[in-house]
Amino acid sequence: MAYDFQVVIDSVDPHPLADWWADALGWQVEAQDESFIRELIGKGHASEDDTTTHNGALVWKAGAAIRHPDGLERAPRVLFQLVPEPKSVKNRSHLDIRVGAGNIEAEVARLTARGAKELHRGRQGPNWWVTLADPEGNEFCVS
């Protein structure tokens, strides 16, 4: 039996990080249904402490998700999950953004202009990549 999955990235501020990654990948931040959130609060299933305001909308504090514009059939969902502590050690896994060798430098320039930090350049035979960190320090590669 095969299973679907989503990728989860811990974050101290999930909504801005979801916005950053949606821009980085050309994906979309999933909308959160404010009326549904208010309904759950009204029924006592959640509290105001479970929410925050982001870009003028009421959202769940615990996280934000992004998805490929073509939907989950194209790529798994990425969820940015609230955690209390900032990142402190190297990731054990990371995302690779594959843009093609001719586009790496331009994409690195675009992402660093938006807050990424260049960490390392690597090469293996004819293949090369640049390892960056997102605004919260999560490593990823552009190849």
Rank of each mutant, 00 (worst) to 15 (best):
residue 2 A to R: 12
residue 3 Y to T: 15
residue 5 F to I: 06
residue 6 Q to H: 10
residue 8 V to T: 15
residue 8 V to C: 14
residue 9 I to G: 07
residue 10 D to S: 14
residue 12 V to E: 14
residue 12 V to F: 07
residue 14 P to Y: 09
residue 14 P to T: 09
residue 17 L to N: 14
residue 19 D to G: 10
residue 20 W to K: 13
residue 22 A to R: 07
residue 23 D to G: 14
residue 23 D to E: 13
residue 24 A to Y: 04
residue 25 L to Q: 06
residue 26 G to E: 09
residue 27 W to Q: 15
residue 29 V to H: 01
residue 30 E to D: 07
residue 33 D to H: 03
residue 34 E to A: 11
residue 34 E to C: 00
residue 34 E to F: 03
residue 36 F to I: 03
residue 38 R to G: 04
residue 39 E to N: 09
residue 39 E to F: 11
residue 40 L to H: 09
residue 44 G to V: 07
residue 47 S to M: 01
residue 47 S to W: 03
residue 47 S to T: 15
residue 48 E to V: 04
residue 49 D to G: 05
residue 51 T to L: 01
residue 52 T to E: 05
residue 53 T to N: 02
residue 56 G to P: 04
residue 56 G to R: 02
residue 57 A to D: 10
residue 58 L to C: 01
residue 58 L to Y: 00
residue 58 L to K: 00
residue 59 V to N: 02
residue 59 V to H: 01
residue 60 W to F: 02
residue 61 K to Y: 04
residue 61 K to E: 00
residue 62 A to K: 04
residue 62 A to L: 02
residue 63 G to F: 00
residue 64 A to H: 04
residue 64 A to R: 10
residue 64 A to I: 03
residue 64 A to C: 04
residue 65 A to M: 06
residue 66 I to T: 06
residue 67 R to D: 01
residue 68 H to R: 05
residue 69 P to W: 03
residue 70 D to N: 08
residue 70 D to V: 03
residue 71 G to R: 06
residue 72 L to G: 11
residue 73 E to R: 06
residue 75 A to G: 04
residue 76 P to K: 04
residue 77 R to F: 03
residue 79 L to P: 00
residue 80 F to N: 07
residue 81 Q to N: 15
residue 82 L to M: 10
residue 83 V to Y: 08
residue 84 P to A: 09
residue 85 E to K: 12
residue 87 K to N: 14
residue 88 S to L: 12
residue 88 S to Q: 12
residue 88 S to R: 15
residue 89 V to T: 13
residue 89 V to K: 10
residue 92 R to A: 11
residue 92 R to K: 15
residue 92 R to V: 11
residue 95 L to D: 05
residue 99 V to E: 09
residue 100 G to E: 13
residue 103 N to T: 08
residue 103 N to A: 13
residue 104 I to Q: 10
residue 104 I to N: 09
residue 105 E to F: 13
residue 106 A to E: 11
residue 107 E to K: 12
residue 109 A to M: 09
residue 109 A to I: 12
residue 114 R to N: 14
residue 114 R to T: 15
residue 117 K to C: 02
residue 117 K to V: 15
residue 118 E to C: 01
residue 118 E to T: 10
residue 118 E to R: 11
residue 118 E to H: 00
residue 119 L to R: 09
residue 120 H to E: 13
residue 121 R to C: 02
residue 121 R to M: 00
residue 122 G to D: 10
residue 124 Q to Y: 15
residue 126 P to V: 13
residue 127 N to V: 12
residue 127 N to S: 11
residue 128 W to T: 14
residue 128 W to A: 07
residue 132 L to M: 05
residue 133 A to W: 03
residue 134 D to R: 05
residue 134 D to T: 08
residue 135 P to I: 03
residue 137 G to Y: 07
residue 139 E to H: 10
residue 141 C to S: 11
residue 142 V to E: 04
residue 142 V to S: 05
residue 142 V to A: 05
residue 142 V to K: 03
residue 143 S to L: 15
